[in-house]
């Protein structure tokens, strides 16, 4: 279980995440929704241990996030983060060297399904190809907690369907997913909990089904209503 307790992160005095509290239990798929600059990526980086909260605590299975939790939390940043020399094969080898839960075979299978070349240099790939490759690399880890930051950004509808399909196939009762996006209609198919964020604050959060019933609208319309 992941617990964010009253977490705040400021950049230059301005809060990127403001007193956020969130609990994610195993088996759930949570969407972090909001426009750019709402604090979604900052929160994910704090959960990964790449960024420290200024206030509050984040624990995973009772352990404060850090070196140990990095073994069990898989994170896909929204940006391309690979070293310039790396091919898709090199990136797989890198993950295999550092993460015990990484499966090269699963990675190669997913890369094949998405028609991606293992020998192609990542810096030469199109943004859509890199987006799919990052998904394959992250989902090839059998991690307990998976975070995908803007997994559907910059890719066509067919590729989006492929990615949603892959995410769905990797869901399990023991795993939690945290997905961020401003493409709500795509995510609505897979999530069961939604957190609406704006300028670091949580405006609304709850079980997706309950939110739909209480407000009589789907999450996409709720998004338009909140941010429109």
């Amino acid at each position: 279980m992941l617990i964010c307790d009253n977490v705040t992160k400021r950049y230059g005095g301005k809060p990127a995440v403001n007193h956020l509290s969130l609990t994610i239990e195993p088996g759930h798929t949570v969407a972090l929704l909001g426009p750019n600059g709402s604090g979604k990526s900052t929160l994910m980086k704090m959960i990964t241990g790449l960024t420290r909260p200024d206030e509050g605590t984040i624990t995973f299975e009772g352990i404060p996030v850090g070196k140990e939790t990095k073994r069990r939390i898989a994170y896909m940043p929204t940006e391309a983060f690979f070293y310039g020399y790396m091919t898709a094969e090199d990136a797989g080898r890198y993950y295999e060297d550092f993460f015990d839960d990484f499966s090269v075979n699963a990675y190669k299978t997913m890369m094949g399904e998405m028609n991606l070349d293992m020998n192609q240099r990542l810096s030469k790939m199109s943004s859509g190809m890199v987006a799919k490759q990052k998904i394959a690399l992250t989902l090839a880890r059998d991690a307990d907690f998976v975070m995908l930051d803007e997994p559907l950004n910059g890719i066509d509808i067919i590729a989006r369907d492929q990615i949603i399909d892959h995410i769905r196939r990797h869901m399990a009762d023991t795993k939690s997913f945290l997905l961020s996006s401003h493409l709500v209609d795509e995510l609505e198919r897979v999530i069961d909990y939604a957190v609406f964020m704006k300028e670091g604050d949580v405006l609304l959060q709850g079980n997706a089904m309950q939110l739909r019933q209480e407000r009589g609208m789907n999450l996409t319309d709720m998004y338009r209503y909140i941010y429109g």
């Binding site: 241990g49 790449l50 140990e68 994170y75 391309a80 983060f81 690979f82 070293y83 550092f98 993460f99």
Partner: peptide, 13 residues
């Protein structure tokens, strides 16, 4: 740069 993610997301101190 963002390549730092590659290094600092690994479970190493």
């Amino acid at each position: 740069t963002k390549t730092g993610f590659m290094l600092f997301m690994t479970p190493r101190t």
